[in-house]
Protein backbone atom coordinates (compact mmCIF):
# COMPACT_ATOMS: atom_id res chain seq x y z
CA UNK A 1 0.00 0.00 0.00
CA UNK A 2 2.93 2.38 0.57
CA UNK A 3 6.30 2.57 -1.17
CA UNK A 4 9.23 0.63 0.27
CA UNK A 5 11.82 3.22 -0.70
CA UNK A 6 10.30 5.90 1.54
CA UNK A 7 10.80 6.76 5.18
CA UNK A 8 7.80 7.60 7.35
CA UNK A 9 6.79 9.53 10.47
CA UNK A 10 4.34 8.85 13.29
CA UNK A 11 2.30 11.69 11.84
CA UNK A 12 2.00 9.77 8.57
CA UNK A 13 4.25 11.90 6.40
CA UNK A 14 6.48 10.12 3.91
CA UNK A 15 9.97 11.20 2.84
CA UNK A 16 11.73 10.16 -0.33
CA UNK A 17 15.35 11.20 -0.62
CA UNK A 18 16.93 12.07 -3.97
CA UNK A 19 20.54 13.13 -3.42
CA UNK A 20 20.42 16.04 -0.94
CA UNK A 21 16.75 16.73 -1.44
CA UNK A 22 13.81 15.19 0.40
CA UNK A 23 10.41 14.95 -1.26
CA UNK A 24 7.67 14.99 1.38
CA UNK A 25 4.05 13.97 1.29
CA UNK A 26 1.42 12.20 3.40
CA UNK A 27 0.68 8.51 3.37
CA UNK A 28 -2.27 6.69 1.97
CA UNK A 29 -3.28 5.91 5.55
CA UNK A 30 -3.37 9.65 6.30
CA UNK A 31 -5.50 10.47 3.26
CA UNK A 32 -7.87 7.68 4.24
CA UNK A 33 -8.19 9.02 7.76
CA UNK A 34 -8.71 12.59 6.54
CA UNK A 35 -11.18 11.86 3.78
CA UNK A 36 -11.69 14.39 0.98
CA UNK A 37 -9.01 17.07 1.25
CA UNK A 38 -10.35 20.50 0.29
CA UNK A 39 -7.66 22.96 1.24
CA UNK A 40 -3.91 22.85 1.80
CA UNK A 41 -1.74 25.58 3.27
CA UNK A 42 2.03 25.27 2.85
CA UNK A 43 5.01 27.50 3.60
CA UNK A 44 6.63 29.47 0.77
CA UNK A 45 9.61 28.36 -1.23
CA UNK A 46 12.79 29.46 0.47
CA UNK A 47 11.41 28.98 4.01
CA UNK A 48 13.54 27.20 6.55
CA UNK A 49 11.87 24.28 8.30
CA UNK A 50 12.93 22.18 11.26
CA UNK A 51 12.35 18.52 11.88
CA UNK A 52 8.92 17.91 13.44
CA UNK A 53 7.83 21.54 13.26
CA UNK A 54 4.25 22.06 12.15
CA UNK A 55 4.61 23.69 8.74
CA UNK A 56 1.25 23.44 7.07
CA UNK A 57 -2.44 22.72 7.36
CA UNK A 58 -4.50 20.09 5.61
CA UNK A 59 -8.24 20.71 5.74
CA UNK A 60 -10.61 17.92 4.81
CA UNK A 61 -14.39 18.13 4.70
CA UNK A 62 -14.78 16.76 8.21
CA UNK A 63 -11.47 17.41 9.83
CA UNK A 64 -8.22 19.30 9.87
CA UNK A 65 -4.64 18.07 10.31
CA UNK A 66 -1.28 19.70 10.66
CA UNK A 67 1.61 18.84 8.40
CA UNK A 68 4.90 18.31 10.21
CA UNK A 69 8.24 18.60 8.54
CA UNK A 70 10.03 15.27 8.83
CA UNK A 71 13.38 16.96 8.12
CA UNK A 72 15.37 20.18 8.61
CA UNK A 73 16.34 22.33 5.67
CA UNK A 74 15.20 24.83 3.09
CA UNK A 75 12.05 24.41 1.04
CA UNK A 76 13.15 24.41 -2.57
CA UNK A 77 9.85 23.57 -4.18
CA UNK A 78 6.18 23.58 -3.25
CA UNK A 79 3.66 21.52 -5.21
CA UNK A 80 1.36 24.28 -6.50
CA UNK A 81 -0.81 21.67 -8.22
CA UNK A 82 -2.11 20.28 -4.91
CA UNK A 83 -2.83 23.78 -3.62
CA UNK A 84 -4.99 24.42 -6.68
CA UNK A 85 -6.47 20.88 -6.69
CA UNK A 86 -6.16 19.27 -3.26
CA UNK A 87 -8.05 16.15 -4.38
CA UNK A 88 -4.83 15.10 -6.16
CA UNK A 89 -3.51 14.10 -2.73
CA UNK A 90 -6.44 11.74 -2.16
CA UNK A 91 -6.03 10.21 -5.60
CA UNK A 92 -2.27 9.85 -5.73
CA UNK A 93 -0.56 10.51 -2.38
CA UNK A 94 2.86 9.15 -3.37
CA UNK A 95 3.38 10.60 -6.86
CA UNK A 96 1.35 13.57 -8.09
CA UNK A 97 0.26 14.35 -4.55
CA UNK A 98 3.66 15.25 -3.05
CA UNK A 99 3.73 18.40 -0.87
CA UNK A 100 7.19 19.98 -0.69
CA UNK A 101 10.84 19.39 -1.53
CA UNK A 102 13.38 20.24 1.14
CA UNK A 103 17.14 20.63 0.68
CA UNK A 104 18.50 18.66 3.62
CA UNK A 105 20.71 20.34 6.18
CA UNK A 106 21.36 17.21 8.18
CA UNK A 107 20.83 13.90 6.36
CA UNK A 108 21.55 12.01 9.60
CA UNK A 109 18.16 13.10 10.89
CA UNK A 110 16.61 10.60 8.53
CA UNK A 111 17.73 7.84 10.86
CA UNK A 112 15.05 8.68 13.43
CA UNK A 113 12.28 8.19 10.88
CA UNK A 114 10.44 4.91 10.41
CA UNK A 115 11.62 2.52 7.76
CA UNK A 116 8.93 0.99 5.58
CA UNK A 117 8.89 -2.05 7.83
CA UNK A 118 8.66 -0.03 11.04
CA UNK A 119 5.85 2.08 9.60
CA UNK A 120 3.94 -1.06 8.62
CA UNK A 121 4.28 -2.29 12.18
CA UNK A 122 3.22 1.12 13.54
CA UNK A 123 0.10 1.08 11.34
CA UNK A 124 -0.67 -2.40 12.57
CA UNK A 125 -0.67 -1.09 16.14
CA UNK A 126 -2.94 1.82 15.10
CA UNK A 127 -5.48 -0.61 13.73
CA UNK A 128 -5.70 -2.53 16.99
Amino acid sequence: MFPEECKYTKEHEWVFVEGDTAVIGISDYATGELGDIVYIELPDEGSQVHQMDPIGTIEAVKTVAELFSPVTGEIVEVNEAIIANPEIVNKDPYEEGWFIKVKLTDPEELDVLFSHEEYAEFLGEQEE
Binding site: G32, G35, D36, N90
Partner: peptide
Amino acid sequence: GRMVDFAGFMMPVSFEGIVA
Protein backbone atom coordinates in the same frame (compact mmCIF):
# COMPACT_ATOMS: atom_id res chain seq x y z
CA GLY B 1 -17.77 1.80 5.56
CA ARG B 2 -15.38 3.65 7.86
CA MET B 3 -17.03 3.03 11.21
CA VAL B 4 -17.06 5.50 14.09
CA ASP B 5 -18.79 5.72 17.43
CA PHE B 6 -21.63 8.22 17.13
CA ALA B 7 -23.98 8.78 20.08
CA GLY B 8 -23.14 5.29 21.33
CA PHE B 9 -23.72 3.57 17.98
CA MET B 10 -21.19 2.14 15.56
CA MET B 11 -22.05 4.17 12.48
CA PRO B 12 -20.46 4.57 9.04
CA VAL B 13 -18.92 8.03 8.60
CA SER B 14 -18.15 7.45 4.93
CA PHE B 15 -17.97 4.83 2.20
CA GLU B 16 -16.57 6.08 -1.11
CA GLY B 17 -15.78 9.56 0.26
CA ILE B 18 -17.89 12.40 1.60
CA VAL B 19 -17.87 14.50 -1.57
CA ALA B 20 -18.75 11.59 -3.87
